[in-house]
């Protein structure tokens, strides 16, 4: 265990979590008006209607795959009789398909963003930086999955990355486990941490307000004037004199 290992796998994750949580809270308080998908569908619909669902649904599968791979210990899958080889075959096949979909989707979306004039002019520098990190994370992730499968020497991340990931949440980071992981997994993890660090400051925040509550609320929303923004505390410099 070198100093670098401690910094990268013992310190950086907590910095990332702190920035992610505090940054999100801060952004939500400070910038509700900027909290949006900033959709460009009004300008161009044809490519978006292919690229966007392919990307987003692929990404949802990728996220589920990550949760399963990182959260469920190997001993549990062993206990239900799923062999390591069988687990990896399904993970590589499903993960590979989802990863390729996601990457294809984002390729279409970036191509659209670059070639459609109005969409490109609506792209900020912030967006561009975010795209670089996002694509890097996707490419590195897909590479670890596919290279492992092609190279034949399968690195079992459920013995290195996953224990480290779970150990983070009990505040006992298992740095040694992560230090044992292969280089490609380390790179992917690092890029992933960078992505989550910048997350609250990019348009990616829209994922945190996925409108699942839509399924459970009545169709017509009534709101009183009182319940609206008017009842929020006055902003600095706008307080009423009569109020305390």
């Amino acid at each position: 265990m070198t100093v670098w290992d401690v910094l990268l796998w013992g310190v950086l994750p907590y910095v990332m979590i702190a920035v992610l949580v505090l940054g999100t809270v801060w952004r939500y308080r400070y910038d509700k008006f900027g909290w949006t998908t900033r959709s460009s569908q009004l300008y161009e619909s044809r490519l978006l209607r292919i690229g966007s669902p392919v990307f987003h649904f692929g990404l949802l599968v990728v996220v589920i795959g990550h949760v399963i791979g990182l959260v469920i210990p190997q001993s549990w899958t062993d206990a239900v009789g799923l062999s390591e080889t069988a687990y990896h075959v399904q993970a590589v096949v499903l993960g590979g398909i989802a990863g390729v979909c996601t990457l294809t989707g984002i390729t279409i979306l970036i191509y659209r963003r670059r070639t459609t004039g109005p969409v490109f002019s609506a792209t900020t520098r912030n967006d561009k930086a975010m795209y670089v990190v996002l694509v890097a994370a996707l490419v590195a992730g897909l590479a670890t999955t596919l290279l492992g499968a092609i190279g034949g020497v399968e690195h079992n991340y459920r013995e290195s990355v996953s224990p480290w990931f779970r150990s983070l949440f009990v505040l006992q980071p298992d740095i040694a486990s992560m230090a044992r992981a292969s280089v490609e997994f380390k790179i992917h993890t690092l890029i992933g941490m960078v992505l989550f660090t910048i997350w609250p400051f990019t348009r990616l925040v829209h994922a945190f307000t996925a409108p699942l509550h839509y399924l459970f609320r009545p169709y017509i929303v009534y709101r009183s004037r009182d319940a609206g923004p008017a009842s929020r505390p006055a902003r600095r410099g706008w307080e009423s004199i009569e109020r305390r």
Binding site: Y30, F33, G34, T124, R125, N126, D127, R203
Partner: peptide, 9 residues
Amino acid sequence: GPFGEASGR
């Protein structure tokens, strides 16, 4: 605002 157009209060 700091996050491109439309951000901020």
